[in-house]
Amino acid sequence: MTPTLSGRIQSRLVLVAIVGIPIAVVLGLILPRPTETTTLGDMYRVFFVALALVAIVGLVWELIWHGLQQFRWEKDWPTLFGLVTGVPEGIVVWLLLRAGVPIDVGDVDGSTFVIMFAITWIAIWLVANGPLQVVFIRWRFQGGRFF
């Protein structure tokens, strides 16, 4: 991928919306509840706050990634980078959730979070690396921008 800064931000927001949200809805229904008292509402609160953090904290991440991209002659963002950046991003989202930022979501079960985050991240990465172009034929020519 060869994103521009605005393409990065637009792509992130669109992908969280069209891939992240449906996946969160499904995972809430099918993932095992960490405790007997955990409700679907509790699950969704964690998932959707996590998604919101991916979207909003991600705007800062994109500035960092874009800055690093400037050190690449090709000014591209290798496919692999799109996958491994999930690790630092995931850790930060986890720490923020635990710290109750932006809202207190109660106890967060570690393994549920890892499964949810990993599945969502990989799904977004897969969709961004091909299928998205089927719907938005010009997307790849305009640095990942939709508008």
Binding site: T2, P3, E74, K75, G143
Partner: peptide
């Protein structure tokens, strides 16, 4: 040396713009 005849972002990234 470079991979293609222009850097990759020339086709649809920041170098294009």
């Amino acid at each position: 040396y470079q991979a293609f005849n222009f850097p990759k972002a020339s086709w649809g990234g920041q170098l294009r713009y």
